[in-house]
Simulated assay, not measured.
Amino acid sequence: MSETILEIKNLQVEYHTEHGDVQAVRGINYQVKKGETVALVGESGCGKSASVKTIMGEKEANQVIKAGEINFTYQSKGQERTIDLLKISPKEMQSQIKGKEIAMVFQDPMTSLDPTMKIAKQIAEAIKASNPQMNKEQINKRVIELIETVGIQNAKVVMEQYPHQLSGGMRQRIVIAIALSGNPSLLICDEPTTGLDVTIQAKILDLIKSIQKSRKLSVIFITHNLGVVANIATNVNVMYAGKIVETGTSEDIFFDPRHPYTWGLLESVPDVNENVKKLPTIAGTIPDLTQPIVGDAFAPRNKYALKVDFKEQPPMFKVNDHHYAATWLLDKRAPKVEVPAILQKRIAKMKKEAEVNGE
Results as ranks from 00 to 15, higher is better:
Ser2Ala: 12
Ser2Cys: 00
Ile5Leu: 15
Glu7Thr: 06
Gln12Asn: 12
Val13Asn: 03
Val22Ile: 15
Gln23Asn: 12
Gln23Met: 06
Ala24Ile: 04
Ala24Tyr: 07
Val25Met: 08
Gly27Ser: 03
Ile28Pro: 03
Asn29Ser: 09
Asn29Met: 01
Gln31Val: 02
Lys33Arg: 15
Lys34Phe: 01
Thr37Met: 11
Val41Gly: 08
Glu43Val: 05
Gly47Met: 04
Ala50Phe: 02
Ala50Met: 14
Ser51Tyr: 05
Val52Trp: 04
Thr54Tyr: 01
Met56Pro: 12
Thr73Cys: 10
Tyr74Asp: 08
Gly78Thr: 07
Asp84Ile: 05
Ser89Ala: 03
Glu92Cys: 00
Met93Asp: 11
Gly99Asn: 09
Ala103Gly: 11
Val105Met: 11
Phe106Thr: 13
Met117His: 04
Lys121Asp: 15
Glu125Asn: 12
Asn140Glu: 15
Ile152Leu: 15
Gln153Pro: 00
Ala155Asn: 11
Val157Cys: 00
Glu160His: 15
Gln161Phe: 02
His164Ser: 13
Leu166Asp: 09
Ser167Tyr: 13
Met170Glu: 12
Met170Lys: 11
Ile174Pro: 12
Ala177Thr: 10
Leu180Val: 07
Ser181Asn: 03
Ser181Tyr: 06
Pro184Phe: 08
Ser185Ile: 13
Asp190Val: 05
Glu191His: 08
Thr194Tyr: 10
Gly195Cys: 07
Gly195Ala: 15
Leu196Phe: 10
Leu196Tyr: 11
Ala202Glu: 12
Lys203Met: 12
Leu207Glu: 08
Leu207Ser: 08
Lys209Thr: 13
Lys213Leu: 09
Ser214His: 05
Lys216Glu: 14
Val219Pro: 08
Val229Phe: 09
Asn231Phe: 00
Asn235Leu: 01
Gly242Pro: 05
Lys243Tyr: 01
Val245Tyr: 08
Val245Leu: 07
Ile253Met: 11
Asp256Ile: 00
His259Glu: 04
Trp263Val: 03
Glu267Gly: 00
Ile286Tyr: 01
Ile293Asp: 01
Val294Ala: 02
Ala297His: 09
Asn302Trp: 04
Val308Thr: 14
Lys311Pro: 00
Asn320Lys: 11
Asn320Met: 10
Asn320Ser: 13
Asp321Ser: 14
His323Val: 05
Ala326Phe: 03
Leu330Tyr: 04
Leu343Asn: 09
Lys345Leu: 10
Asn357Gly: 00
Glu359Tyr: 06
